[in-house]
Amino acid sequence: MVTTPPHPAHPPQPSAKTLLRRELLAARRALSPASLRTSARALSRSALALPELAGARTVAAYVSVGSEPGTRDLLDALRAAGKRVLLPVLLPDNDLDWAVYEGSGSLAETAHAGKMPLLEPDGPRLGPEAVTGADTVLLPGLAVDGRGMRLGRGGGSYDRVLARLERAGAHPALVVLLYDEEVVARVPEEPHDHPVQAVATPSGVVRFTDSA
């Protein structure tokens, strides 16, 4: 008896978030080194104008890598202004520990399986709960929309941070650092996504009202 082989299963279609991430990451990869440097300086000026940073005693931030909007100038400016700056340390389960930024010499390149090398602080680890003491949390992302909804890279690390803040009853200001063209009309959202209060770009700051 001749049997008909089963039809191959159709591959799953990428989600709207996945497609948008691909598009935004491709645009970032096309940026020139000179453009990255210029944008980083302008982004630092924009972010420093935020009252959420001016009035903060502790800021949870991050070290940009690759073609992300540059944060190194901003980190040094915050530290010079007397802020306590916490930087993340990636844990094996993609959660984040934290340590205090003590200047560029305190950063060490760290390899993580399946990820690009990260620059992480080499000081004492403070534990994942340390972020709950921050007055302002600077979030990486790929886009934010007019409601303040943020599109992350999909790793889940900052979803855990935001959930931890919520569980602790902590309400720091949430600010995303992006390029100008990454402020978009709408990003796909899921029930666990949290709106942010503001986005800083090289051109300035965009603020959001509370999302319904």
Rank of each mutant, 00 (worst) to 15 (best):
T3H: 13
H7T: 15
P8Y: 02
A9D: 14
H10C: 08
P12L: 08
P14S: 02
A16Y: 03
K17Y: 02
T18N: 03
T18K: 12
T18P: 00
R28N: 11
R29K: 14
L36E: 13
R37N: 06
T38K: 10
S39K: 03
R41V: 14
A42C: 09
S44M: 07
L48N: 02
A49G: 09
A49D: 11
E52D: 14
A54G: 05
A56G: 00
R57A: 15
V59F: 05
A60T: 04
A60D: 09
Y62G: 10
S64A: 15
P69C: 08
G70H: 08
G70L: 00
L75T: 08
R79F: 07
R79H: 12
V85E: 04
V89W: 02
L90S: 15
L90Q: 04
P92A: 11
N94M: 14
D97Q: 00
V100R: 07
M116K: 12
G123K: 09
P124K: 08
R125Y: 03
A130M: 07
G133V: 04
D135T: 00
T136Q: 04
L138N: 08
L139K: 12
P140I: 09
G141V: 08
L142S: 05
A143G: 08
V144Y: 06
V144Q: 05
R147G: 14
R147V: 01
R150W: 11
L151W: 02
L151M: 06
G152P: 09
G154Q: 04
G154H: 02
S157N: 03
V161D: 04
L162T: 00
A163D: 15
E166S: 13
G169C: 08
G169F: 08
H171S: 15
H171G: 13
A173N: 02
L178N: 07
D180I: 01
E182L: 03
A185G: 15
A185S: 14
E190Q: 11
H192N: 05
H192K: 01
H192D: 02
V196Q: 07
V199F: 01
S203Y: 02
V205P: 01
V206W: 09
F208H: 12
